[in-house]
Write a protein that binds this DNA or RNA. Structure first.
Lengths: 340, 340
DNA sequence: TCTTCGATCAATATCGATTTTGATGAGCCT
DNA sequence: AGGCTCATCAAAATCGATATTGATCGAAGA
């Protein structure tokens, strides 16, 4: 192709088309002031020549970067804490791409201040909107963004008074159904393996568990509620510990794929067979389909979560002002493994 | 803090400090024309007021965005193909951050043209450098970037004549040692579960396997070499298939954590016990420590790969011109599971 | 005393896209 | 012919950071 020495920008594109910069700029954005045929001609030429608009220029002028940023939670080194985050990212990408937005992911270093990361993104004008997970009841990130009036959607709810956009999986429902399922199978000492108590979804999970047990007339034993970080290693150690104490559990409800693995390995470490225990897990990947025994799982794929989060984000960016329309709760699907 | 109505930019920062824009701009970059005390004063004020430089303005003027972009390979929906990519991202972030670079991750949609993605990033000036994996012998992305003279580091080698920066794990060595280990344990029909044959690392893995078998005087049976996509589902099905044919394998060498799971589940599907087979795997996470039986693994953490890739990238961006200094091969560490 | 140097200044240009302003011509209606 | 709309124009301003130029001013050196 004609590879001129000069960079391909609006100016050279306009010259090439024998149109004014104004018209080309408008035509590329389907401006109503431009004739349909001209729009077509301009867009065709732009595609053929491979014109890509310079984000620098665009951002500087408009303050928009046409990109959505996903904050990725930190992973402890040398342990597994996460699977499928790329799935989430891809779900985001899928929807964002179609709307002309690029996707950016910023990993957070463990222990780093998330607000600093937000500042860099917002003040540096690196993104038009933010998506992040693991919300806290009084999430400082949410507060900060509300104060700055910067568009965001959280994966998870908060307890803040000011409403904001969120998408969430109904964890209360999942642990409620999981508990009921285990109770119906005759288990009475059900261990809830939960994320750190400060996370919102930890509290919802506890609520569903309590509700089911209370309805069944069973006392809650606080020793059976483990608030752990979301790593396999920690879960493994804690489960081992728990099993060696008095009146150990006979069933487990795990918060995700990875803690499920950790729990099972913890049991095996002390000579116990996971198959002898009741076992339910919330999952966002199909990982547990590949381990033995396969638990009853409550599945909501991260990729779909990414899509939903992004649809909400796009509506927010397009100016939806009624925030309550940007809140969405999804129910996990129950998967019962087929006996082999 | 003093939240003026005006945005905090160089101009307002300069006014606040009673210095000229020129001096502030230089001071922020430790320019040699500025007194040490002034530099300190400027940087202190910038930190206090939370000044973040606008990427738009910077990019527009200098062409630099101070960000490094990682291309993330596509994940097939509703299957597991990947763990630990966030680890890689975090390794990249860790090193990049310290050098003042932001990190961006762009997921590729399955089936999308990667060159389009590259164009958007390069022509849109969205990043200063690119990192990506799963190289092909004549990788079109590498060719494209070489032609454009855009900085990049690949995770994996190529067979292109023009040298380029890469980091790679020595897969040939890993499969060679794995094969030797299995042979020494008496296994004779070793199945190599490989990624698609077009990937460079597939070829290296095959080479190590061939070498060990040939040295042991064992004929290569092409039916024992499976070139599969990197998903658990596909591996599971293919292993099942293979086991039902004549003279099935007695041992497996898996390309990663996920195909290991798929393989084991495939065996279980038809009533076989994975523990009865020889089993080695290359891994980039500790996932397989949590499954039974735990294979002998050849481990190189993705997070460390991310760090190394980024160090090479930074040296490239700082102007290292001798590309052969930007090529690095790492050896995976052998982990033998402790018997329980 | 004259020169040089170091640290700073103000003013201006530049990067690319968008936006505004006011103008121009062509075609249409009355 | 006069008025109007539509599609387009050229020119200039703007966003924020950097780079360049030539000037200033005090202190140090010859």
């Amino acid at each position: 192709m004609g590879d001129d020495r000069a960079r391909l920008n609006l100016k050279s594109l306009a010259r090439h088309l024998d149109l004014s910069i104004t018209t080309v700029s408008r035509a590329l954005r389907n401006g109503p002031e431009v004739r349909k045929e001209t729009i077509e001609r301009v867009q065709k030429a732009a595609a053929e020549l491979g014109y890509v608009r310079d984000v620098g220029g665009l951002t500087l002028r408009t303050g928009l970067s046409y990109s959505i940023c996903v904050l990725m939670s930190a992973v402890p080194p040398d342990d597994i804490a996460d699977t499928g985050s790329v799935g989430l990212l891809q779900g985001v990408h899928e929807v964002a791409q179609a709307a002309g937005y690029a996707v950016t992911a910023v990993p957070l270093a463990p222990g780093a201040d998330p607000i600093d990361a937000l500042k860099t993104i917002i003040d540096g004008r690196r993104a038009d909107g933010l998506i992040f997970d693991h919300t806290l009841p009084m999430d400082p990130r949410v507060r900060f963004l509300l104060e700055r009036d910067f568009p965001f959607v959280t994966f998870g709810r908060t307890e803040l008074f000011t409403p904001h956009a969120w998408f969430d999986i109904d964890d209360e429902d999942a642990t409620y159904r999981a508990s009921q399922h285990l109770l119906a199978s005759g288990y009475r000492r059900i261990c809830l393996i939960n994320p750190p108590a400060e996370f919102m979804f930890s509290q919802y999970r506890l609520r569903g568990y309590r509700k089911a047990l209370t309805e069944a007339g069973i006392d809650i034993d606080p020793r059976l509620i483990l608030d752990l970080d979301l790593t396999a290693r920690r879960t493994r150690a804690s489960v081992k510990d728990l099993m060696l104490q008095e009146s150990p559990p006979d069933a487990f409800i795990c918060v995700n794929d990875i803690t499920s693995l950790g729990m099972m390995t913890g049991l095996r470490d002390i000579g116990l067979d996971p198959a002898d225990f009741g076992f339910c897990a919330s999952t966002t990947t199909r990982l547990i389909e590949y381990v033995e025994p396969t638990p009853v799982s409550f599945y909501f794929p991260l990729q779909e979560a990414g899509r939903r989060l992004t649809r909400l984000m796009l509506r927010r960016l397009e100016g939806e002002t009624d925030i309550t329309h940007l809140q969405e709760l999804a129910t996990a699907e129950m998967h019962v493994p087929t006996r082999r």
